[in-house]
Computed example of a mutant assay.
Amino acid sequence: MKVFLTGHLGYVGTVLLEKLLAENFEVVGCDIGYYPQSFEDTEIVPQNFLKKDIRDITKEDLYGCNAICHLAGLSNDPIGEINPKLTNEINYLSTIRLAKLSKEIGIERFIFSSSCSAYGLNEDIVTEQSQLAPQTAYAKSKVNSEQELVKLRDINFAPVMLRNATVYGISPNLRLDLVVNNLIGSALSTGKIKLNSDGTAWRPLLHVEDMADAFVRCLKASKNEVNGKFFNVGSNQGNHKVIEIAEKIAQKIPNSEIEIANKDNKDNRSYKVNFDKIYEELGFKTKWNLDDGIKQIYDAMKDKCLSLEYFSDKSFHRLKYLKWLLEKGTINQDLRFKN
């Protein structure tokens, strides 16, 4: 099977690319190349690499592919809120355009990287049938994409919507703006596990390798198993309060302590998620738990002699890096590279 992988140079994409090649998939990688692979020296490359904005993909780019794994987009809530209109263009309109192009040329499977943030603020344990309540431009772009993708479903074209939990873990293109990674980096570089809220919000967590494995599982499944379906990706044991995450980190990292910046500040993104469906229908089960993930991150980071300067470097923070590219004049306000 030949797979067109968008965002193959990103935090998840670099991990998924390695797994696809290990499973003997032929891969065409497509990435605009915003962010450097800044953590590990080894670089795995697809058989074909298209350096291109997802807004500009053509049918010719897709010919010969059997499936799309669509990861590319503006990747988190803070970036999405800078320019909601641009977030809508890149994350939603470009996704639907890509899916329609794929369907027109006979690509059979379109696996979309959505998010559990679609559930927003919810006191119940949510399932794929629960009401959606996206709180941010990023989450809204994911929900809008899901709703339009499922309309494209037919016997020949199978969209699959993966609502991924909050990702963590080591990647060649490391991010330190994700909650687990960020708290560990803070502990190592300052001795403080710094919380910006009261820590009572719930987060479902998902190791980056498990997220990549879910995409591989959806590629290997029969079309009928996945066509038009929504799957929460994670594990029931992976639901944690932010304060619990911090406590586990404090237990594992010497000379670290929790610091709550504002005890009156509550995070309005709080949700617990049920992940039974993907296990019952696809047999997918995560391999990582939070304790093992913290150990992996800690072991990898401590070997880098992590300093505050290193931890704060723009290469590990998506919003900070995009702002730097804008200030430098490398990209325009629409986030396209200047010629």
Rank of each mutant, 00 (worst) to 15 (best):
E26T: 15
L206M: 12
A250L: 03
K252E: 11
N239Y: 10
K323D: 11
L290I: 12
I82F: 08
F25Y: 15
G80M: 07
L17P: 01
I54H: 00
G283S: 10
K287E: 13
D291W: 01
P84I: 09
H240G: 01
I79W: 05
I249T: 02
V233F: 07
E309G: 00
N76A: 09
D334F: 05
I260F: 06
M301C: 13
K52V: 13
V208D: 02
G10N: 11
Q37I: 14
T6Q: 07
Q296A: 13
L335F: 15
G64R: 08
E60G: 02
L86M: 12
N164M: 15
D299I: 06
I96G: 01
F284T: 08
E281P: 03
T136R: 04
G329C: 03
L325S: 09
G283N: 05
D264E: 15
I170R: 05
Q251N: 14
L50Y: 07
S235T: 15
S75N: 14
S186V: 01
L206A: 10
A158M: 04
N339S: 10
A118K: 00
G29F: 10
S189L: 07
S117W: 04
I44E: 11
E104C: 03
A99K: 08
D264Y: 13
P159G: 02
F316K: 11
T286Y: 10
N24W: 04
L16Q: 02
D267G: 05
L152G: 12
I79Q: 07
D334T: 06
S114Q: 06
M161C: 14
T42R: 14
L206C: 05
S130F: 14
E244M: 02
I260R: 11
V208G: 11
R269S: 12
I170H: 06
D334A: 11
P159N: 05
E281W: 00
I245C: 03
S75D: 04
F275C: 14
H8E: 05
P134D: 09
D41M: 10
A139S: 15
V160K: 10
D303W: 04
D53P: 08
C218H: 04
I105V: 14
T190E: 07
F230A: 07
A118S: 15
L17Y: 09
Y168G: 01
S256V: 11
K59C: 05
P204K: 10
S315Q: 12
E259D: 12
H317A: 08
